[in-house]
Structures are given as C-alpha cells and as structure tokens.
C-alpha cells in the first residue's frame, strides 16, 4: 500500500466521522425520500434532483473543499514533517474528501430509489446519468476547491474566490452564452453552442441530463445535433475527455502549487 492509499484510509476515517459529510449524505437521503414520498412522478423527482446536482452540489463541493483544506493545514504540517512526499499527501487529501462526498451523494440519492423502486427503464437510465454526472461534478469541484485553497493563503479570500467561481460557472456563464447566441442569431450556432457547453462542466452535466429528461423538447434541430453528438461514441468520448480535463487541470496546478508551497 503506498502512502496516498494510507493517507486516504485515515482521511476517510476522519472525514466520515465529521458531521459535515454525514449531514451531506443525510440531506440527499431526506431530499430524495421526501421527493419520492410527495412528488407527483418519478420524472419530477429526477428533475428536482437534477437542479440540486447542478447548483447545490458544485457549491457544497467548492465550499467544503476549500474549508477542508484550510482546516487541515495543521494536519498537513504534521504529515509533511513525516517522511511523506507532497504529491502523495495531496492525492490522499483530495481523495479523502472527494470520495466520501461522492459516496454521500450517491448513497443519499440512490438508496431511496432502491426501496421505492424505479417506474421505468428510462428513469433508471436517467438516474444512472444523474449519479455519474453528480460524481464527476463532485470530483471536479473538489479539485477546483483545492486549487483555490492552495493558491490563496487567506481563508476568507479563498472562500470568496470559491463563491465567485461557483457563481460564474453555475449562473453567469449561461447568461454570457445566451447573450452570444442572440448576438449571432443569424449564423448557424449549433456547433459553437456545443463547444461552449463543453467548456463549462456544469453546462456539460446539464446538457447530458437534458438529453435524458427533456427529450421531447429537444427534438428540434438543435436537439437533434446534440443528440447525435452525445449519442455517438465519439461524443461520449469528447464529453468524458472534457470532464477529465476539468478534473486534471485544477489538480495539476493545485499539485504544482502544493509542491512549492511554504507551510
């Protein structure tokens, strides 16, 4: 077992005992359970969950992630005074938070469906896409949080930056896209729109979910272009690659910074 795996094991023990992650899982559990109890249909339950996954999940991952790393500073110092290489520690810390968060999300959203059952196969597929995109967003936004936390020494400043990043990716970016689409309304926009979608992980996740949920509304030309793209092996490859880039780039710069950082 290498050092990353060892650190991960102890981080898991630590994080799983902290109330935050438990509360996070319980939140998803109660939310899903309540939606399934009181929601009118599985489709509307999935829609509500989708909104939570696209908005709340990135926010929680960012805030949790930055706070976690700021709070772990003493622990980091302790471990760095041990014979442990920094990349191993960084990897252990990252997985030590991202894995429990993703697990909490998955358990919270999927378990209620286990005992309530899923109405139709199409809903099961939507749930699967929801679980996958939610997990991907968790890993991406924890990576962004780590980059922010190692980049900014000051906790308040780091938290502020995290909120701005969330606001931009989850809300403002779409405003800019809408503006661009209307400014260039006279040109064929399907391909540029596709590219713009790939550039924002939240948008990418949203469109992947749209293709599951709002299939009837998306049956127009735009929808056809997108469905053909994301329905093809090539499209799935590009979408996965885009998500991986969103994961790798913050992790790379975060680690580089972490390696050079003074504690």
């Amino acid at each position: 077992m290498n050092a990353t795996a060892k650190i991960l094991t102890y981080e898991l023990q630590d994080v799983l005992r902290s109330r935050g992650v438990i509360a996070y899982a319980v939140f998803f559990l109660l939310l899903t359970e309540a939606l399934l109890q009181f929601g009118s249909s599985t489709a509307s339950v999935l829609l509500s969950l989708m909104n939570v996954v696209l908005l709340l999940l990135p926010l929680v991952s960012l805030v949790f992630g930055t706070m976690y790393l700021y709070n772990a500073r003493d622990f980091v110092e302790l471990l760095l005074s041990q014979p442990i290489r920094r990349p191993h520690l960084f990897g252990g810390l990252y997985l030590g938070l991202a894995v429990p968060l993703a697990t909490g999300f998955l358990a919270g959203t999927c378990l209620p469906f286990l005992w309530h059952g899923v109405e139709a196969a199409s809903h099961a597929q939507t749930l699967l896409v929801l679980a996958l995109t939610g997990t991907a967003l968790t890993f991406i936004f924890v990576a962004l949080a780590f980059l922010i936390a190692v980049r900014f020494e000051d906790k308040a400043r780091g938290l502020g930056v995290a909120l701005v990043v969330w606001l931009f990716l989850a809300v403002l970016y779409d405003g800019l896209v809408l503006l661009a689409l209307h400014m260039f309304a006279n040109y064929p926009l399907e391909t540029p729109a596709l590219v713009l979608t790939l550039l924002n992980p939240v948008d990418l996740a949203r469109v992947l979910l749209l293709l599951q949920v709002d299939i009837s509304a998306l049956m127009g030309y735009t929808g056809a272009v997108f469905e053909r793209f994301f329905g093809s092996l090539f499209g799935v490859g590009v979408a996965s690659a885009a998500l991986l880039v969103w994961l790798a780039v913050p992790l790379f710069f975060g680690l580089r910074r972490f390696n050079r950082k003074d504690f």
Binding site: L47, M50, N51, L54, L55, A170, V171, L172, Y173, D174, G175, V177, L178, L181, H182, A185, L189, E190, A193, T197, D203, R206, V207, L209, L210, D214, A217, L218, G220, Y221, T222, G223, F226
Partner: peptide, 20 residues
C-alpha cells in the same frame, strides 16, 4: 419566448440563469 426567436438557446434549458 427566447427559444421561439432563437432555437439554439433551448440548450440553456434548466440553467439557473434562465430560471432567474
């Protein structure tokens, strides 16, 4: 209404910005 005028904007469906 926006979608009626510009079909590609349909892609922003269920975006927080659009809901706002």
């Amino acid at each position: 209404l926006l979608v009626e005028q510009n079909e590609p904007s349909l892609l922003l469906l269920r975006s927080m910005f659009v809901d706002l």
